[in-house]
């Protein structure tokens, strides 16, 4: 039903500085190239499709596992990645298969960096109601962002909220992240 013949699953490597010009890599590419930089980023563009997302998430998590992150850090990264991908596909692109999600990721023994960008209208972080306040506790939104921010070491939004950049440092188990 959602088959679109996409060729967007192939990753390509870009340098750290490249993710500043997302538009230049918005086309789907099967090319893999490695450029000089502090950290190698792998860029993947997928359609707004949960199955494609699941596959990409699995690939990223395998790399994290490969680098020997603790169970706790692994849980944090899995959760944040899941929430960010759902946000991009569902809330950003509104499940529109014509819209893409671009993911740049770098996994090193020291840190994991994930940059996820959708083609939706964006959002204003400060306008998302606090889901932990008494009056919002029974509402069903805002928790994804809360969890991302609680579990990741660093989270930044840009491009009007269409892009989220998050980093998890591979520290020995960090103190629990309470919001």
């Amino acid at each position: 039903m959602v088959s679109n013949g996409s060729h967007g699953h192939q990753p390509r490597r870009t340098s750290r500085s490249n993710h500043g010009r997302a538009e230049s890599a918005r086309h789907e590419s099967a090319n893999t190239s490695r450029a000089a930089g502090d950290t190698d980023f792998v860029t993947t563009v997928i359609p707004s499709d949960f199955a494609a997302s699941r596959e990409l998430q699995h690939r990223i998590i395998q790399q994290v596992i490969h680098h020997g992150y603790s169970e706790r850090n692994l849980f944090a990264i899995k959760l944040a990645l899941e929430e960010a991908m759902i946000n991009a596909i569902k809330h950003g692109n509104k499940l529109d298969m014509k819209k893409k999600v671009r993911v740049d990721y770098a996994v090193t023994p020291q840190h994991v960096e994930l940059i996820i960008e959708d083609e939706g209208p964006g959002f204003h972080r400060e306008q998302v109601p606090d889901p932990t306040s008494e009056e919002n506790l029974c509402k069903c939104s805002g928790r994804g962002i809360l969890l991302i921010e609680a579990y990741m070491s660093k989270v930044e939004y840009s491009k009007g909220g269409r892009r989220v950049r998050m980093i998890k440092f591979n520290q020995a188990d960090t103190p629990s992240a309470h919001g």
Binding site: E82, E83, C140, G144
Partner: peptide
């Protein structure tokens, strides 16, 4: 072992 904010909802 894992659940999402959608599951919480």
């Amino acid at each position: 072992d894992h659940l999402s904010s959608a599951a919480l909802g």
